[in-house]
Simulated scan of single mutants.
Amino acid sequence: FREDYNITIKGGKIPVPFRSWKEANFAKEITDIIESIGYKEPTPIQRQAIPIGMQNRDIIGVAETGSGKTLAFLIPLLSWIRTMPKIDNYSSDASDQGPYAVILAPTRELAQQIEEETNKFGVPLGIRTVVVVGGLSREEQGFRLRQGCEIVIATPGRLVDVLENRYLVLNQCTYVVMDEADRMIDMGFEGDVQRILDRMPVTNLKPDTEDA
């Protein structure tokens, strides 16, 4: 099956790819959204990356533009956030600790494209997203962040800015996606990315080396 779809893998105990959305066995809410949007068949990167992501394992996915990478990281992310307490401005303990996940993108345009795709699922699921990018009011973004959200989608430079100005903390952020990571490094964002990662909680839990 992997040969048929030109899927190459490297790592230990990698789950088998699924052949259809139905076979993927997602929560019914997510399957219903996929059907309502009209996504007929999963792409090769989705068939293999999503089962790995659903195990909450680190993954590097490489595929061409337009191959469905965004959905490949969104479905495991949203499936996990569904199990977490909602973050809003009424539950100050949770909102004061920041989002559960950060998605980094090299450009404002890509960040906004990811937001559009995320909201197709997030709005029906009650999962809130805030975009933090240059060219928009920092104060307005700060206001939305203080209202609470589960996911922040950002460009590295602006996210560092809001972190340093204390509009946001990442005390409970344990899920990070770096979309077009190679492009971010090429554009000189490596230092900003490291500063962002340094703001996140450190875990002493080690992965099972046989599975990692």
Rank of each mutant, 00 (worst) to 15 (best):
R2M: 14
Y5V: 00
Y5S: 03
N6E: 10
I7H: 03
K10P: 00
P15A: 04
V16I: 01
S20D: 08
W21P: 07
W21N: 02
W21H: 04
N25E: 10
F26R: 05
E29M: 02
E29I: 05
E29Y: 00
E29L: 03
T31N: 10
I34V: 15
I34C: 07
E35R: 10
S36E: 15
I37M: 04
E41C: 05
P42T: 12
P44T: 13
P44Q: 08
I45L: 09
I45T: 03
Q46L: 04
R47K: 14
R47D: 04
I50L: 03
I52Q: 05
G53F: 08
M54Y: 02
N56G: 07
D58H: 09
I59R: 05
I59V: 13
G61I: 09
G61N: 05
V62F: 02
A63Q: 04
G68T: 12
K69W: 01
L71G: 14
L74H: 02
P76N: 10
L78C: 06
L78A: 07
S79N: 11
R82L: 14
P85G: 10
K86T: 13
D88Y: 15
N89I: 05
N89R: 15
Y90C: 12
Y90I: 15
S92T: 14
S92A: 11
S92Y: 13
Q97Y: 06
Q97L: 15
G98R: 11
P99Q: 10
P99G: 11
Y100R: 10
A101W: 01
I103F: 07
A105G: 12
A105N: 08
P106M: 10
T107Y: 06
T107E: 08
R108A: 10
R108V: 13
A111C: 07
Q112F: 12
I114Q: 02
E115C: 14
T118L: 10
T118I: 09
N119S: 11
N119Q: 14
N119P: 02
V123I: 15
L125Q: 08
L125D: 07
V130E: 08
V131E: 03
V132L: 07
V133I: 15
G135C: 09
L136I: 14
L136A: 14
L136Y: 13
E140G: 13
E140N: 13
Q141A: 12
G142I: 09
R144T: 05
L145V: 13
C149V: 00
I151L: 04
V152F: 05
A154Q: 06
L159Q: 01
V160T: 08
V162N: 11
L163P: 01
E164Q: 13
R166E: 15
R166D: 15
Y175R: 12
V177L: 03
M178T: 00
E180K: 10
E180R: 06
A181W: 06
A181Y: 06
A181C: 13
D182H: 06
R183G: 00
I185V: 15
D186W: 02
G188A: 07
F189R: 04
E190N: 00
E190L: 14
E190V: 11
G191C: 00
V193M: 12
R199N: 13
M200R: 05
T203P: 01
T203N: 05
N204Y: 06
N204I: 07
T209Q: 14
T209S: 13
D211M: 10
A212S: 11
